[in-house]
Design a protein around this nucleic acid. Structure first.
Lengths: 223, 223
DNA sequence: GGCATGTTGGAACGCTGTTCCAGTCGTGTC
DNA sequence: GACACGACTGGAACAGCGTTCCAACATGCC
């Protein structure tokens, strides 16, 4: 243990699992998914790659730890509301925004499901499903449908952002994409062409919540 | 152009984009996502890595082409049904099963959304949403909620399978996972612990369809 | 002081995607 | 028939990755 002799840490600050995970999150946020390498991480922590492996088994574990941390913070920030319905919407938005701010989390959560981060979300949603009055036998289905939808859309949304360099404007992107849809083959893609116009004034967050409401309506209808 | 002089190809068979994509799909299916490398692909095609790059720009393009091919085949196999509702369920199952059989497709579709494969699914679902009688202004929302749910759950499901070696039985996996849930902290995870038992008799496909029905019920309720 | 233990960081390994390029093949032109 | 040219091939080489290994260091205990 590199315990401090008096008040000063060993050298600047000792290496620790927490410090490594924090640095990894920063690197992922600023440089993107490919920006996280053990060498870059080592440089940022002023050490060598080997030292990191003393605290963390491998890159996969590092990614799990990083996404767990991000989701935990997001869940802690979710406020309770008067109704279960409002709380569910609030949890959903919390996850959506956390993944929007840290797009790599989306990729990570769909890579290995049922890791701690996913369970945290499932638990929070599940309690509210219970509060909605869904009968015991249907709670699992309702909760996992909601969680799957939330993670699916959030990741899809984040993937859009991951493709483009930060410089590209979101409105420009939608404009371009809408134009692409309109140029699709008229016989093969009639529906897509028809709704291409709607894509231009598309608000991801609003659309996401509309989907949540659709599922909530379905749950309410089958009570 | 290595055009055939008479009936026989140049040497065995000429390299072509199609042959490369087919070999890539085989490799991904048999060896998993990490099994696809340009060297392994070159060996299988009895050539060198450089030759492949004449036909395909990079690995990303290869993955897009491979998943497009798989989805296209799955969509071609979907039968039309009497009601829009049944057809939607059928498309959903088709995608679910295609991703279950080729787990790497799930990862690929969530990596870069709005590629041809996703659009194909969106189009097919969209037409049925129209047939359901959803008003013009709400079709986009309904269709994209369904597609997001379908891709989200299918990928989540595939990710479960991707983790384990083929030897592990599905029932064993659920048993282990259920046991893990029951050992969670009682104060932090009351809901998850409560539904842990339901996880044991969990049928992914049935649960998936139940979620579809939930969304369809929501759509019907808001007509 | 000296030893054991926990921790560090740099060198090295095997693998990857990708680039480069010297060579081969089939064909169109004189 | 010779020649040249563009399409195509495949092996060598490069930079970078995750990971392993290990000689060196720091510190707490006897």
């Amino acid at each position: 243990m590199a315990k401090a002799k008096r008040g000063s840490e060993r050298r600047e600050e000792a290496l620790s699992r927490e410090r490594i995970v924090d640095a990894a999150i920063e690197l992922l946020d600023t440089e993107g998914e490919n920006g996280l390498t053990f060498r870059a991480l080592a440089t940022r922590l002023a050490t060598g790659p080997g030292a990191i492996y003393w605290h963390i088994a491998n890159k996969s574990e590092l990614l799990v730890a990083a996404s767990d941390a991000v989701v935990a913070r997001a869940m802690a920030d979710v406020a309770a509301h008067a109704t279960a319905r409002k709380t569910i919407r609030s949890i959903a938005v919390g996850v959506f925004e956390a993944i929007d701010a840290h797009p790599w989390v989306g990729a990570q959560l769909s890579r290995g499901p049922w890791q701690t981060a996913t369970l945290q979300i499932f638990e929070r949603i599940g309690r509210q499903v219970q509060a909605l009055g869904v009968p015991d036998g249907a709670q699992f289905t309702a909760a996992s449908a909601l969680v799957s939808y939330i993670l699916g859309v959030s990741d899809q949304n984040a993937a859009n952002g991951r493709l483009l360099e930060p410089a590209v404007d979101r409105a420009d992107f939608l404009e371009t994409e809408s134009a692409r849809w309109k140029e699709l083959d008229a016989h093969e893609y009639p529906f897509t062409r028809k709704v291409a116009t709607q894509l231009r004034k598309h608000d991801d967050r609003a659309e996401f919540l509309a989907g949540i409401d659709l599922i909530l309506a379905g749950i309410a209808a089958s009570l």
